[in-house]
Every structure is written in structure tokens, then in C-alpha cells.
Amino acid sequence: MFPIVNKQTMAKGTIVRFDISAPKIARKVQAGQFVIIRVHEKGERIPLTVAEADAFIGTITIIFQVVGKTTALMRSLNEGDMIQDVVGPLGKPAETHNHGTVVMVGGGTGVAIIYHVTKAMKEAGNKVIGIIGAREQNMLILEEEMRVLCDELFITTDDGSYGMKGFVTDPLRTLLTERKDINLVYAIGPIIMMKNVCKLTKEFNMRTMVSLNPVMIDGTGMCGGCRVSIDGKTKFCCVDGPDFDGHTVDFDELEKRNSLYLKDEKDSLLFSVH
């Protein structure tokens, strides 16, 4: 059992941050890696990328958007409550050596993950340019934290309620056009965002890493449920990823695979309401 030591809600309650006591994982986890969480005895296993870890206190931080039954249930938990299982760290760590100048693009809850990678990038000596986006101002998370880390930070909102109106690809296009010193783009967020970022960077032939979030069960390479097509080859996101070269990813396939259980998800939620 893993106790929740700190809880914080963000973005009008649709995004929740947990600090969970998991000392062994906290000592080992690196940016880009994820954990599998099973909330209770009858729960499902879901992957959540670690947003921060404190090896000294022994906590890991996860930031999740409430999208289905399990995340809704998690939101109802409070400090001191227990999570049944936390497994990790899983997946390959992000490539956070010194690339030179990197652009870190985060959208929605993806900002939580890009934050962890950004921190590691900064520590590795990179010059870091950040772009974070959300639907509207209230949905934007970790702005202050990113501002501290980034040498430059751009903010976009879909409705223009804060920062620039538009998508994260807008400032990215400007950057790629005007700046010649950029070595790598890292993009984490909704599939559609990552797909568009990759489409753009492909034009500039700019290497782009993305972090994928397919449906997973065990997260240790056993079930094959998280398979993604990378350069036409089947890869398992949990052991071969979750980070891949974005230009090799079949995003359309991923999108379809991720929507397979939408009806089940609804049934499951209805069941829990009754």
C-alpha cells in the first residue's frame, strides 16, 4: 500500500496532483519514466508518467487528468488515503543529455511530464525553450515551475484567454523559422498535438521526441496491449518507449487504439455511479 502524502487539484478540478510515498521508486525513477497504478483490489492498471520525484523524502509525483473511472476515483482520494499498487519505474528514461538547445513543448496534462524532462534537460546543461499550451487559462498547469526552468517560455491558449491565442505549433513554427541553433524538439501532450508538432518539425527536418500513452495492462512487456507502429514495425511502448522519434510514429493508429474502450469506460463509470 502506498499512501498519498499530498494532494492538489488544478485546472478547475480536472487535473489532480498526488505526491505518493514510494521510496524505492523515488530513488530510481528518471525523467520520462512511468509507473503503473492500481487504486484498489478490483481496480484496473493504468500507466501514469512520473512528474517529479524526491529521493530524499521518498515521494513520487503524478499529475493526471480526470478522464475515466479510475482517474475519477483517484480524484476522490485524499491525503492519507492508500493506493493499492504502484509499480515502477517503467519504460526507458528520456534522452536528457546535453543536446545544446532544446524546445520543450507541452500541452494539457502533458505539461506535467514535459516539466520533469525539462528539469533533467536543464540539469544536463541544455539551453531550454519552453512552449506550453492549454484550452483556456484555467486549464494551464505548472506555468510558474516551467518559467523557473526555461530560458524562454511561450504560452498559448486555444481561446486566447491567456498568452498567445492559438496552438503550441504557432510559436514553434516561428522558432524553427527564425532560430538556427535548435537541436531537438520534445513534445508531450494529446495525440493530436504531438501529431501536429511532428508534422511541423518534419518540414524543418528537426529531430522530435514524443512520449506515447497507449492502453497498458502490466507495463512490463507482457501483454502487448501497448503496441505502437514505429517506422512500420511493432514496438511495445512500455519496454521500447514511452519516448520515440516522433517522425516514425503512426499517430492515427495510436489514436484509434486508444479509443477502443470508450464504451466500456462509460459502462464502467455508470456502474460505479449506481
Binding site: G43, T70, I217, C223, D264, S268
Partner: peptide, 25 residues
């Protein structure tokens, strides 16, 4: 599905008891 995923859902996650258990069958 891989047999592993199919069987894991059923045996390990008890998906055949969905929606009492959370893993879809």
C-alpha cells in the same frame, strides 16, 4: 489481442467480472 493480454485481462484483472472489476473484457 495477444494471448497474454487476453488471458491477463481475464485471469489477473478479472475482466470477466467487468464492470464490478474495472478492466474491460
Amino acid at each position: 489481442y495477444s494471448a497474454n493480454e487476453y488471458l491477463t485481462r481475464i485471469n489477473l484483472m478479472k475482466a470477466y467480472l467487468f464492470p464490478e472489476y474495472d478492466t474491460p473484457m
